[in-house]
Each structure stands twice: as C-alpha cells, then as structure tokens.
Amino acid sequence: MTPWLYGVILAMCGVAAVLLVVDLVRDRAAQDSHFLTLAVLEVLLLVQLVWGCVALAGTERDVSAATFVSYLVTAALAPVAGALFSLAERSRVGTTIMLLAVGTVAGMELRLGDIWSAGA
C-alpha cells in the first residue's frame, strides 16, 4: 500500500476533525466547507480503494484479502453515509455525525495499516 496516501488521508481526517470541532464548539450546523472537506476525503478514499486493490493483486504479502478489501470499501462508504445523515440534521447533531464519520474513517485507516503490515 502507498504510505503517502495513507498519511494524506489521516492528515485530511485530522483537518476535518479540527474544522468540525471548531463549529461544534460554536454550536453550528455542518457548513459547506465541511461537506467540501468530506468530498475531498471521499475522493482520496476512492483512489485508495482502487490503489489498494491493485496493490493487493500485485503483492507477495500474506494479506487477508477479504478483510482488507472490506475495510477499503467500508472506509469509502463512511463519509457518504455521514454526509447524508448530516444533511438530514441541520444542527450541531449533524456536525457531530460528521465528526463520527471522520473518526470512523481514521480508525479504519489505522486498521488498514495494521492489516497490511501484518501480512509482511
């Protein structure tokens, strides 16, 4: 797997989390900038999904393919689900949901890293 993409996604999660916490403290609903951040995160996750599958196909490592791919797919679904839930709740609840979604992505990224290196 590509370490830099992994790093960029985690950094993106961090940026999104800070933005969301700031507006959560201000008691604001999710802003356009949050949706944009989530969209960028989503694009990165989709790139990772493709890249991860290609890397998996070409690797000598003993990576659990089913687990790895299901993590890639679920991570890519989390921001979409979070954004949809957040749209339905235009208050700080929606902002909290986005934060949960970003946290989910970050957690899954960490696990993805573990799964990949466990096969080494």
């Binding site: 689900a81 839930f85 949960l100």
Partner: peptide, 11 residues
Amino acid sequence: STGWGRALVFG
C-alpha cells in the same frame, strides 16, 4: 431517530 437519535443511529 431524529435529533441526537440520528447521531445514535449512525453510531
């Protein structure tokens, strides 16, 4: 399932 319930449903 609305308000904070929606966050709970998500979690």
